[in-house]
Design a protein around this nucleic acid. Sequence first.
DNA 1: CCACCTGGTTACCAGTTGGATACTCTGAAA
DNA 2: TTTCAGAGTATCCAACTGGTAACCAGGTGG
Lengths: 114, 114
Amino acid sequence: MEALRADMFEEICPSTLLPFRIGPDKWSAAVLRCLEDGPRRFSELRVPLARVTPKVLTQSLRALERDGFVRRTAEARRVTYELTDLGHGLLKQLYVLCDWSSEHWDELLEAREG
Amino acid sequence: MEALRADMFEEICPSTLLPFRIGPDKWSAAVLRCLEDGPRRFSELRVPLARVTPKVLTQSLRALERDGFVRRTAEARRVTYELTDLGHGLLKQLYVLCDWSSEHWDELLEAREG
DNA sequence: CCACCTGGTTACCAGTTGGATACTCTGAAA
DNA sequence: TTTCAGAGTATCCAACTGGTAACCAGGTGG
């Protein structure tokens, strides 16, 4: 993924139109993407995921951890999250779906609007 | 898909463990699979999807139709549903995900249990 | 000692999804 | 004429999900 920006996943984010969900809950896919380029701290994740409240972000991270996609490491005054191999694999599948979606974006959009 | 059997998607159906959802709602993936081999009537779909109530099945079909994955055809005393090209494409993506999942089934299962 | 930062937690609430159950309408069949 | 099959609707309700807002505990810098 390109660099993490503030509030990358706004209301109008086109991903909300895609006909699938990856991971256990609403924000899983976004979290996976934010972890793509290496470990991140909780507070780092809050920047791109600005409209996810801490409670919901925690829930999402815990679910991803439970399912083996993310590893949580706590060392004094520092908690980091990173993708496991399985998590990287899942993220890859997300990109497969995104590729297909962008190939068929016109049809997908037309069906929704028409 | 193999032939449609009665109640193919029971409670213990392993698909409920897969970390993704394809299509607009809970039963979309199952409906797509049931339509894979050609058009089906409403009552035909109710056989493999025995534990989906008619209301919910209708909802699912309407959503799939709205999104352009399924085409509904009503000719006197006969309503048939069939996949559009887009629907076939989406189903193919489902199989991609299933392939990946079965490759990593052990890891997926272990994470859930451990 | 006090404020502050990190990484959360708690309690509460609203919206959405899906399920149970019963009912309906239409046109053919007997 | 009643009945039946097909294709749904109509209500109601419980569970689940996600969101708001507020709070907190432990370490750090001044």
